[in-house]
Amino acid sequence: MGRITLSKVTKRFGDVEVIPPLDLEINEGEFVVFVGPSGCGKSTLLRLIAGLEDVSGGVISIDGQDATATPPAKRGLAMVFQSYALYPHMSVRKNIAFPLRMAGIDKAEQDRRIDNAAKVLNLTDYIDRRPGQLSGGQRQRVAIGRAIVREPAAFLFDEPLSNLDAALRVGMRLEISELHKRLATTMVYVTHDQVEAMTMADKIVVLRAGYIEQVGSPLELYRKPKNLFVAGFIGSPKMNLISGPEAAKHNATTIGIRPEHISVSATEGMWKGRVGVSEHLGSDTFFYVHDTGLGTEMTVRLSGEVEMKSGDTVYFTPDADKIHRFDDKGLRLE
């Protein structure tokens, strides 16, 4: 249960083609993350799968069945919205019970499932409160609870963590990942945050303007970005991209080197520059190096606490086998 296949799926709003014909396979039990900048069509794609928007062309099938014209309620999918979309006039219990009530499931079974979900999500203490009396993280859990009790074929999440503060986000990220491990149900997760994508996904789908730029596991995307867009989008801090004579030395139009694949020395190295701002995270230190003579400033990441003053001259050298090469169309060269 929970295999979703999109073939030649297209979506137009009036004359604007938001999703050009797109093929995608989501396997059973997989945690798939759609990631891309704001406005690239991630939500639209998710809503197409949910059935909240009609496709302009193409076929969506769920578990081998053509579901293109199936109404949302009949697709067996549960969605968690960015705004949580809880029913404000109902208690937490009633919110979670709502899909079961609509499905006409008997009271005893309803209670069993609700109590179960409440226990899994730590909702028991405020099960009789209204959503308005809960914190953001608690509301998020209620929304997830409402999705779980339906025992859907797949979960759809639309930026569920973007309204939470940073610390809570890390916690909820973990909880959702654990939930996926436990339920082993297909999850489709939309985010604009590449860190969420990298940490949670089995499979990442990188989108730009409705096009799929690359599909792959987090490490595949990290190691072998197919093009400049993916190279720049995946990884934090961003990959350094150098073009011009330095790239030509490697027979490429552009070369990319990740900040963590550069070593630094005070005395000798391939390139030379002047230290600008440095950011100390404790576990890591990021430097921004100016006047590199490469036509761009470089970001360097060193692990541990490194003392370096602004204005110091440094020499730095990329790991030769970690250099990514791209051609004049921005595509990866092997």
Binding site: G51, L52, L77, F81, S83, Y87, H89, F98, M102, R146
Partner: peptide, 29 residues
């Protein structure tokens, strides 16, 4: 009324009349 609430209800299996009775009407109270 937040349109996502109506969409959530739709996905939860509430047909138009029930969406009116359970979501819209209480919101209008």
């Amino acid at each position: 009324l937040d349109s996502e609430q109506l969409e959530a209800a739709e996905m939860d299996g509430a047909p138009a009349l029930k969406r009116f009775a359970y979501i819209i009407l209480p919101h209008l109270g």
